[in-house]
Simulated scan of single mutants.
Amino acid sequence: MNDNDVPLTDLPELSAIKQAALSYVTDAFAEAELDGLDADCMAQAALFAAFQELVATYGEEAVADYAAGLPDKIRTGAFSMAVSLKH
């Protein structure tokens, strides 16, 4: 079983594979910054690409349900804590 076999809502913590993936994305952001791309532009493009992939994998309804929970995760610092994984 891998993370793609588990519903999105059942993945509260990053697995080792997801930590590695986050490192790749963080590296891509750093490389884009060196090339002069704005971090906000990269973030929006990354979100678009991420949601496109999630919809292809799980379907619109599952991803919409997942996205509906994002405001609470943002407000409780779930993504602020992910910043510490970069270092």
Rank of each mutant, 00 (worst) to 15 (best):
residue 31 E to L: 14
residue 74 I to R: 04
residue 52 Q to L: 11
residue 43 A to H: 04
residue 66 Y to Q: 01
residue 37 L to P: 00
residue 75 R to F: 08
residue 75 R to C: 11
residue 28 A to D: 11
residue 49 A to W: 02
residue 8 L to K: 06
residue 42 M to R: 06
residue 46 A to Q: 08
residue 65 D to M: 10
residue 12 P to K: 01
residue 22 L to I: 02
residue 51 F to W: 10
residue 78 A to G: 03
residue 55 V to F: 07
residue 45 A to H: 03
residue 9 T to M: 10
residue 1 M to K: 11
residue 86 K to C: 03
residue 62 A to K: 14
residue 13 E to L: 05
residue 78 A to M: 04
residue 5 D to K: 09
residue 17 I to W: 01
residue 61 E to N: 14
residue 51 F to L: 13
residue 62 A to C: 01
residue 1 M to I: 13
residue 34 L to M: 15
residue 55 V to D: 08
residue 81 M to C: 04
residue 25 V to T: 15
residue 20 A to M: 07
residue 68 A to P: 03
residue 21 A to D: 13
residue 65 D to N: 15
residue 36 G to D: 10
residue 21 A to Q: 15
residue 75 R to H: 13
residue 72 D to R: 12
residue 48 F to M: 11
residue 38 D to T: 02
residue 80 S to E: 10
residue 73 K to Q: 13
residue 60 E to P: 01
residue 52 Q to A: 12
residue 6 V to A: 06
residue 23 S to T: 11
residue 41 C to K: 12
residue 78 A to K: 12
residue 71 P to K: 04
residue 75 R to D: 12
residue 8 L to Q: 06
residue 18 K to E: 13
residue 36 G to C: 12
residue 31 E to F: 09
residue 38 D to V: 04
residue 18 K to M: 09
residue 54 L to N: 00
residue 56 A to M: 10
residue 6 V to W: 08
residue 83 V to A: 00
residue 36 G to N: 07
residue 86 K to L: 00
residue 38 D to W: 00
residue 47 L to W: 04
residue 70 L to H: 02
residue 24 Y to D: 15
residue 74 I to S: 03
residue 43 A to W: 07
residue 18 K to F: 01
residue 49 A to Y: 06
residue 33 E to N: 13
residue 22 L to K: 01
residue 50 A to K: 03
residue 4 N to L: 15
residue 7 P to I: 11
residue 29 F to E: 05
residue 13 E to N: 06
residue 2 N to I: 07
residue 22 L to E: 01
residue 65 D to W: 01
residue 30 A to D: 02
residue 16 A to W: 00
residue 86 K to Y: 00
residue 16 A to S: 07
residue 10 D to C: 06
residue 31 E to D: 08
residue 18 K to T: 05
residue 32 A to T: 15
residue 64 A to C: 08
residue 38 D to Y: 04
residue 69 G to P: 05
residue 80 S to T: 12
residue 17 I to Y: 07
residue 79 F to T: 02
residue 16 A to Y: 01
residue 60 E to Q: 15
residue 69 G to T: 15
residue 14 L to K: 01
residue 81 M to L: 12
residue 12 P to I: 03
residue 80 S to F: 09
residue 35 D to S: 11
residue 4 N to C: 10
residue 65 D to F: 09
residue 70 L to N: 03
